[in-house]
Nucleic acid binder design. Structure first.
Lengths: 205, 205
DNA sequence: GTCTATACGAAGATAGAC
DNA sequence: GTCTATCTTCGTATAGAC
């Protein structure tokens, strides 16, 4: 509620999200989050009474917020195709700039959900659902029927997340590029005539 | 090389693959693999001189083989659309039958790759590449140009893996169904006239 | 190939002072 | 909010016998 000058709590959450994305939940230990964020050991359980489990939970929600903001930002033009192209381009840069280390914290938490952190799956699901809702709105606003918009939104998010996993493993942007291109074409054909987007040639990133 | 009567080694690898898929690399400890497989403690480092890291490595390769066999089996009809429909149907059942616990060991290893197991990313990449090659062959045999076939194969595998992650988090087959439907339609339009598949209505699973 | 025992380290969590 | 122990659990890995 009351933001501190040197926001240890926030920095820990942000660091946890990074570590989660780069190396998975196993590597997102309290020790490493502390080292990465520079936050003090002493206040860990003051900020996160439920310990590591809670920390990862909040990191997932945080990553969800960040990405949701980006989806919103990129959708302001009202053109769903441009918006989704931009999202792919954004992550292409992120992957390359990080030497293919950057990954999605939400996927990492979802995949690692077990008896140690059963709620991680729920946290991840919440985020995925939120993204799907946001994207669905964009697509429906673009002229797609509700049913198709929903289906397509889920598809795009799944394809995107899977492509990121493949890119990191292969250390190549190719899978993301493949997804971007296929989804671009798919959207162009699925959407009714978009105003000011008559010439589609060379629009894919 | 020489298969034993009570194949402890093989059972450990198989169990590791299951645990990896269900709960991620963090939960795939030697102890749990032992408990799950019923294999004896005493021979762990006899079978896996490099310990847990090697065990997980081999589990990834094993899971890769199993899935590659399935891709091959499902492609024998020569119809790429039917083959990919079948793959999605297969995993839909797997997810539901397991209460949405079953997951992909390869993705789990890829996401958890860090300094503890840097080679897991490479093992995963090898598997993904192998699947992509196999699928590319199927699509090219179906009449697609090499370039598009490659791109589409990477796309399909990424979309598939991402959808599985979403399904497990949301405990719902919806994301996989969305992917199956969208990809089915995409393939039908991308492929030249498929023999014996004139009527496409109701072919999606 | 399999056993027991044990060394060792990493990490989560708690207690109580400041 | 932060600090310094400290406790405890767990998991990897090794040693040496059978």
């Amino acid at each position: 509620m009351s933001p501190r000058r040197s926001d240890s709590r926030g920095r820990m959450i942000s660091s946890a999200a990074v570590l989660l994305g780069e190396q998975g939940a196993g590597a997102t230990s309290i020790d490493r989050v502390l080292a990465h964020s520079g936050a003090p050991r002493g206040s860990v359980y003051h900020h996160f009474p439920e310990g590591r489990t809670q920390l990862i939970d909040e990191a997932v929600a945080f990553a969800g917020d960040v990405m949701a903001d980006r989806i919103a930002a990129v959708s302001r033009t009202g053109d769903p195709v441009a918006a989704i192209d931009a999202l792919f381009a954004l992550w292409r840069s992120r992957l390359i700039d990080s030497g293919f280390r950057a990954g999605c914290p939400v996927v990492a938490a979802a995949v690692a959900a077990d008896e140690e952190g059963p709620q991680w799956a729920d946290s991840a699901a919440e985020v995925f659902t939120r993204w799907q809702t946001t994207l669905t709105d964009v697509l429906v606003a673009g002229g797609l029927p509700e049913t198709r918009g929903r289906r397509l939104a889920a598809f795009v998010i799944g394809a995107f997340e899977g492509a990121v996993v493949l890119c990191r493993a292969e250390r190549s942007p190719a899978p993301l590029d493949a997804a971007a291109a296929e989804i671009h074409d798919l959207l162009v054909h699925a959407l009714p005539d978009r105003p000011g987007a008559a010439a589609d040639a060379g629009e894919a990133p």
